[in-house]
Structures are given as C-alpha cells and as structure tokens.
Design a protein around this nucleic acid. Structure first.
Lengths: 342, 342
DNA sequence: TTGTATGCGTTATCAC
DNA sequence: GTGATAACGCATACAA
C-alpha cells in the first residue's frame, strides 16, 4: 500500500508551490497555460488522484446528491435513475442511492445516513407507510434542498415532481367505461400517498361522471405486490357472478398482471369477462397475454425534472426557494386487455 | 446556514479535550462510562454529526465499498444488492452503486470514479462487451480488493462468486430432451462472458451426451433483450417447418418471454410445438402463459457471498489474498412451458 | 482515564 | 502568475 501522491509531491517535482498545483489541476486561468499543462502531465505521470475528502472538508460541499427510493426493481425506477444520472453528471454531481424497501423505518435511517454523508441535496420518493416527514426536518433546518418525486408529500419547503395521477386514472377508467364496463374494481395503493389517493379520486370521478354507483367493496388497498394481485383475483372469484366486476383498474402493472394471470388460470376470459387496465407501462405489461392497457409513466422525464429542479435550487439563491409543483404528461396506452368487441 | 457542531464545540461545553470527545463518541472503553454518556447526550443536544470527510482524511479509509453492475432493473440484481447491503451494513460499511448499462466505456468511467472515491473494495459484474480488465489495473496496483460476481473474468488477483452455469444449462437442456425435444435452439449472451459461454458449453454437452447433432444455425448470440427475443421468434418463423426447433433454451428469462410471446401470437403452441426454458427466475417467468421453466439463480446468496468475501479480504491480511472461486447452487424449476404430454 | 500536539490533502486569502 | 499560510474536523501517538 504505497502512499498517495499529493499536490505537495507534484509541487516538489515541478519546483512550484502546492497552491499553484491546486489551481493548475482545475485549469484556473490565473495560471500560465504552459504551467497548467506541465502540471497535468506530471500528475498523470505520477498517478496523482484528487482527494475528495480533503477537498470536501475544505469546501464544505460534497458535490453529491442523495436519492432514496422505495425499490429499484422496476422499469419505472430505473428510468427515473437514468434521468437523474444524466442531468447530475452533466453538472459534475455524484449521486448515492438507497432503497427504503417500502419501510418507513428504513427510510428514516436512510435519510439520516444521507444527512450524515452531507449530501448537497436530496431526491426522494416516499415509502408506502410514511405518515409524516419529520425525519426530513434536519434537511429543512439546514436548508438543504429536498425534492420529492412520484410519491410526494405536501410541504411548503420543497419541490415536487409528479404527473397528474387523478387525470391519468380518470382517463383509464373512462376508457374502460367506454368499452362497456359498468362494474369496475380498483386495486389501489396506500392512501397516505397522494400518488394513490389521486388515482382513487380519478377513478371515483370517472364513475360519477358516468352515473356509475361507487361501491367500496370494489376498492382494495394493498401494497400492489405479486401476492396482492393474486389475493384480489381470489376475492373476485369468491363473489357471485352477479357481483363480480367486469373490469379492474390497478394502480400498478405488477398487481394487474398477477391478478389477470390468476384469473385466467381459473377460466376467466380477459377482456371479455373482465377487462384490465394497469399503471406504469412496465416491461411485463407487454408480455402478458393479452397485453395490458396501461398508463405510460415517463420515468426518465421525471428523473430529469427532479434533478434539474434540485440543481437549480443548489445553484440559485437558497432563500428564494419555494414550493413548486411540476406536473409532467402521461399517456394512456390502449392494449388488448381492455379492448372489447362492442 | 449555521456552522456545524464539531468535537471542539462539545469539548468546550463539557470542559474536556477534543481527544476525549473523539474517543467518547465511539464509546471507547478507555473512557469513563459516565463521561461517555455525558458526551453522547451533549452531542445529541447540540445536534452534533460526525464528519466523514475529516475522519476519512485522517484514517485513509472510506468504509465504503463500490458496486458496479450492468443494470439494476432485474429481480436478480435487486436480490444481489439486498444480499450485499445486508452483509455490508452489519459490518458498518456503506455502499455506492453504479450501472454500466452494458457499455464497456461507461464501465471504465465508473471504475475510475470508484477509484477516485477511494472505495475500500469493489464488487463488479462486467458489461457485455468488456474484453479485458485493464481498467481495473489501478485497483490491482494499489491492492484494493476486487470481487467479481455473475459476469466474471479469470484473473489471479481476485475472487469470483458464481454458479455452475455449465451445469445449470446442462440440466435445463437435458430436461428438454427428456420431454422429447430433439432440435433445441439456444439464445445465448456474449461469449466474452464465462457466464454465457459456460451456458453454451452445458447446452452442447447435453446434446452430445444424448447423441444430438450440434447445429450452429440454432445458436443465436445477442444481448438477450426484448427485441432480441422477438428477432429470434421471427427467425424461427422464417424457417421451414422441418427446420424449426422444437425447443428453445434461453440464457435469460426476458428474451425467452418475448420470444415465446411473439411465437404465440403467430399461432405457435407452447410447449407442444416449441418448448421453452429460460434462466434467472425473474418475476416475468411466473406471469407468462404458460409459466416459464427456468433456473433459479440465487441472487441474494450471490450478493451475500460476494460481500462477505470482500469483507474477509478487507479484514484479513491483504498479502494472503488469492484467487478464490466460490460456486453457489442453482436449481432447475420445471414449469408448464416445457411440460410435454408424452 | 484524560490531555497535548500534530498531520491527513486541499483550497482560499493575502501577499508578492 | 505564483507563493506562503491558515484553516477544514478528526484521530492517534505520546505524555501525564
């Protein structure tokens, strides 16, 4: 384990001062062009590498933004990440990622870790069961900017990047109604999250606008996982034929796909007996048979917007930072799972 | 933006020396129990937080391990990550993650970033097109341990964590043969990766052991993505009926599922016309109709083993570090996509 | 059990 | 254009 090469070593070799080396390494134009290139090539030659710790210690900035998400294993999240990464790296920011695995406690601890790592800003999509954001108070107290995306929380201290979930849900449900469906079930996520409560609102609004009675036995709230989809299917099968829904609108594709798949196994015809619509446009939605009608949730754009929003605050005057709600567009993708032969 | 609380501030408040505070904060037993608790509560009260930069600068260790993977968006990778995270956090190590997106150049740049961030060790699964590991040389030179998993590279300087891909493929193909299949196609990944070349070897061995002629027109190498599955399906459809395979063994589930799905759309019956087997046991393998026979690739265990291996090296004597090849068990999961009514 | 003194590598301020 | 110097906050060798 050799000693690391420092700017002092370079200074000694080149008969310059450490200060000049430091400036030269970041191509300051207060330094002679020629000196700069001598410094750079010497650095290369000696295998110098910049020491972030020393630099951060000195600068009191980490040039790092933290990201906390519920889970990474969806196409949506990977897209968000890609969007964030692109924007951040252009501005020479590093990112660190952690997963809350949908658990409030883990989210708290991750927030804490991010705080202690002194990230310059935080991007967060909340866990299912997070009820308040007191764990973010340290960030607010220190005026470290926080941007919420997807799973947001109303606050006066931060920016949100979302889509119009209510509208998207409204479109999906209206489409199902137009296909002739009259008894539409909804598999929703935690109502603690606006993301999901807005989808429920859109669902209700669509029913109302079409004079369909809202039946709360047809609304199931869950974590929208594999098993939840199957449970919903079993619930449907447990109903009398007359009580069964003729369509299901799910707040994500995973639950839709598992629910559909389980119903198919029991002989239910999709979309003729029961039509389906999901949410997110995950890869599964395109392999399931029939292909799943869903909402295209533009993850990459969300990520870009969230990162850009954060960097704006970081570059601008922190004291002028205010609540902004950025609403991106989403699209209904109509596929076979909801196409009735009318 | 207030000034941060430091150990000096605590020292002043408590009439102790910074050294005592430093020791007290990490509960050194060279310090009076009572003093320790006074320090801790004062720290709490004043909102002290440990400064990693100062500490790392001093210690020349980051207590951080780097992870580079091709992509995060699979169940397999998320499981690996969870395994790594569990092991690492128990030993109070932090992790930082980056994606190469299957691109050699991005991988290089990520390796570089990790090096400059001075991670204490590196866990890596290589990109499709990485041909050599010269970009890891800085790690080897500085004796910073590197552990490969899944997509590995033969080297004398590092540990690998894998499954027996050859054996797993052999089992899958043998199973297809036992179902009566005689003309088995293989969708494989880049032969630059042992992971995939071993699967091809297992495939060939199974054919040979059953006196089936190896036909290289039935082997397609690709990136195993969505489109590659569809392309393979179209290739199959372009063949005369007599030339068509009666089974397909795919090196991942994604390509299998898309290939299957496309063939089904064209009226091919699965498994009767063509049987399928995939690899990984991704979530999609359980929703596709018929359910996909696949290899259960134990991601969580791989992650655990890789992290544990790395930490072992980190804790032990670096000079005794040597090439270890850790081979974990995988299992063939037989599902409907390969069950022929014999 | 606690204190003193010093250095980790960088950068900003001030001087020349 | 370049140099000298003083922080940044922490952890340890050595002393007491």
């Amino acid at each position: 384990m050799h000693k690391d090469v420092t700017i002092y070593d370079l200074a000694r070799e080149l008969n310059l001062s450490p200060a000049t080396i430091s400036r030269g390494l970041k191509k300051s134009d207060a330094i002679n062009k020629d000196t700069v290139s001598r410094i750079l090539s010497k650095a290369e030659e000696m295998g110098y590498r910049h020491n972030n710790f020393a630099s951060n210690l000195r600068n009191k900035r980490t040039q790092t933004i933290g990201i906390i998400v519920p889970r990474l294993n969806s196409y949506f999240m990977t897209s968000v990440l890609a969007g964030i990464e692109d924007v951040a790296s252009k501005e020479r920011y590093n990112i660190i990622i952690s997963q809350s695995l949908e658990k409030k406690e883990l989210e708290k601890s991750n927030v804490n870790t991010m705080f202690n790592k002194r990230v310059d800003g935080l991007l967060i999509s909340l866990a299912y069961d997070t009820t308040d954001i007191s764990h973010l108070q340290p960030f607010f107290d220190k005026h470290i900017p926080v941007v919420f995306f997807d799973r947001t929380f109303q606050t006066e201290e931060s920016t949100c990047v979302v889509i119009n979930n209510r509208d998207a849900a409204y479109k999906a449900v209206t489409h199902l109604i137009q296909q002739g469906c009259k008894r539409i079930m909804h598999l929703g996520g935690s109502l603690l999250r606006d993301t999901y409560s807005d989808r429920l609102k859109g669902y209700r609004q669509a029913l109302e606008d079409n004079n369909i009675y809202y039946d709360d036995t047809l609304v199931q709230i869950s974590k929208l996982g594999e098993q939840d989809g199957i449970d919903a299917a079993n619930y449907i099968l447990s109903l009398n034929k007359s009580e069964r829904p003729d369509a299901v609108f799910c707040a994500n594709d995973m639950s839709a796909v598992y629910c559909m798949s389980h119903l198919k196994e029991q002989g239910i015809k999709i979309p003729d007996d029961i039509a389906f619509a999901g949410f997110n446009n995950d890869a599964v939605s395109r392999v399931i048979e029939p292909k799943l009608t869903t909402i295209d949730y533009p993850g990459y754009n969300i990520g870009e917007a969230a990162a850009a929003g954060l960097l704006n605050i970081l570059k601008g005057d922190v004291t002028t930072m205010k609540t902004t709600r950025l609403v991106l567009q989403s699209t209904l993708l109509i596929r076979d799972s909801s196409k009735r032969r009318l």
